[in-house]
Nucleic acid binder design. Structure first.
Lengths: 240, 240
DNA sequence: TTATTGTAGATTGTCAACAATTTACTATTA
DNA sequence: TAATAGTAAATTGTTGACAATCTACAATAA
C-alpha cells in the first residue's frame, strides 16, 4: 500500500526516445487518492456489498492504513455518490433502486445529447479511432467473465464523447454519475449472470456516432437509453 | 464559531402547537460543514478573491479553527468546483473564464430542460406559490445592493424546479454547478455595478413556468440562457 | 412481559504533532 | 550577470490521541 513514486528515467544515450515521447509532468498521487481507488473498486466489484454499513475503523484495519487518509478517501467516494455519509452516524454503501437507475438513464440522455451537440463538428480521425479502440476493448471484455472490467469498458466507451467535447463542466457532470452507472452495470451482471451490454447495441451507437447525421445520433441516444432502461425493468420483474 | 446545537423545546401546556407543527428531526451540523459554509460565502462575496492562492494554515488562522476540519471543508468546496486543489502544491480559488460561463449556461439549459420535463405534470399550488415567493424575494434583493444576497436569490429561484421534480441525481447535478453560477453572478455585479438580473426576464420565466405549454417553457429556457450569456458577452467586451 | 432509563462501548469528528514535499531564497559557479 | 545548486522555510499529507456523539445492551420500573 505504501508505494514509492516511480521516477521517469531518461538516459542520455537514447536521443530518439527523447524526440518521440513527450516527457510528461509527474503528478504526485496522494495516499488518500490511492485508498479511494481501492475503495471504489471494492464497492463496484461487490467485495463491499451495496447497502452495507461501513465504518472508518473497520476499513482502515482492512486496508491496513490509518484513519485519516481513509476518511478523506471516503469523503471523495461520498462526493461521487457511491456511499452516503450521515454525520455522527455512519456510512452506507449505495444501493441502487429502480428509481435511481431510471434517473441515471434520464440524466445520461440529457448529458450525452449535449455532449454530442458540442462534439459533432470537432470529431476527427483520432476520435473515430479511439471510439473503435474502446468498442473493441468492450467486446473483448465480454469474452471474459469480469464484471468490473466490462462495466468499466462500457463506461470508457461512453466517456469518449465527454472527454472530446471540450466542455469541462459537462465532463465533470458525467464523471459524477459514471461511478454509479458502473456500479449498476456490475451489479446487474452479477445478479443475473448475463453479459451486458447487448453487443449489437454498441455497434449501432458507434456507427451513428461517427456518421453524418446528428439528428440520427440524438435519436439513437434516446433509443439506446430507453433500451438500457427497459432491459433493467425486465430483469427486475424477472428477479421478483 | 463553536455553536451549541439548539434543542427544540416542546412545552406541555401548548397542545395546539404540538398538533399544528411537526417536530422535525434534529440534524447535527459538523464543524467542518460550518466552515465550508463560511468559506463558500467568503469566496462568493469576493472577500477571498477569485484566482487567489489560499493555504490551509492561513485560512485556519483567519477563521480561528484548526487545520483538520478546515481541510475537510476545503475538500467539500473543491468538490463543488469553487476551488481547485493540486496535491502537495496548493489551492487556488476558481476564476471563471468566459468559456467557463458558456459552459455553465449550456449545461444549465440541458439540466433545466430535463427538470421541467420531469416536473411538468406534478406542478401544484405549492410549487406556484413557492416560485412566486422566491421571485418576490429576488426582486427585493435588487432593491438592496447586496451581491451575495441577490445572486443567492437568483439561484434559489432557479432551484425550485430541481427541488420539486423528484429526480435526486438531477438535483445533485444542479447543486454542483449552482455555486459556480452564484460566483459568476456575484462577480459580475461587483465588476459592473449593474443589478442583475434584468427584472422582467424572470417575470416571463415565472409566467411560463406556471403556464400550460411545456413547449413554450422549454423555448423560454433556451432564450433565458442565451440572453444571460449574451449579456455576459456584452459586459466582457465593454470591460476590455 | 414490555417499556424506559442509564451506561459502556463503538464510532465519528477534531486536534496537534510529525513526516513528506514543494517553494522561495541565498550562495556559488560559469 | 545569469544560471545552478543547496538549504531553510512554508505548506501539504498523514498519524495517533483525545473529545464528542451515537448505538447497543443491561438494569430497572411499570
Amino acid at each position: 500500500m505504501r508505494d514509492h513514486n516511480e521516477q521517469v528515467h531518461t538516459t542520455m544515450n537514447e536521443p530518439q526516445l527523447m524526440s518521440q515521447n513527450r516527457v510528461k509532468p509527474i503528478k504526485r498521487e496522494t495516499f488518500s487518492n490511492q485508498i479511494a481507488a481501492n475503495l471504489r473498486r471494492a464497492i463496484i466489484s461487490g467485495e463491499i456489498e451495496s447497502g452495507s454499513q461501513i465504518t472508518e475503523s473497520d476499513l482502515a484495519a482492512r486496508f491496513g492504513v490509518s484513519r485519516g487518509p481513509l476518511r478523506e478517501a471516503m469523503g471523495q467516494i461520498a462526493a461521487e455518490g457511491l456511499i452516503e455519509t450521515i454525520p455522527y452516524t455512519g456510512t452506507r454503501v449505495l444501493k441502487l433502486s429502480p428509481e435511481d437507475v431510471r434517473e441515471i438513464y434520464s440524466l445520461r440522455t440529457s448529458l450525452e445529447t449535449l455532449a454530442f451537440r458540442e462534439v459533432w463538428e470537432r470529431r476527427d480521425e483520432a476520435f473515430v479511432r479511439e471510439l473503435e479502440i474502446r468498442h473493441k476493448a468492450l467486446l473483448e471484455t465480454l469474452a471474459l467473465d469480469d464484471h468490473v472490467a466490462s462495466s468499466e469498458a462500457e463506461v470508457r466507451f461512453h466517456s469518449l464523447v465527454y472527454e472530446t467535447c471540450g466542455h469541462k463542466l459537462l465532463l465533470e457532470s458525467w464523471r459524477r454519475i459514471a461511478g454509479r452507472m458502473q456500479l449498476y452495470l456490475a451489479e446487474h451482471q452479477r445478479a443475473h449472470g448475463r453479459k451486458a451490454p447487448i453487443e449489437d447495441a454498441h455497434e449501432r451507437y458507434l456507427q451513428l456516432a461517427v456518421g453524418n447525421s446528428l439528428a440520427l445520433m440524438l435519436e439513437e441516444i434516446d433509443a439506446h437509453m430507453q433500451r438500457g432502461f427497459r432491459q433493467m425493468e425486465q430483469y427486475l420483474s424477472f428477479a421478483d
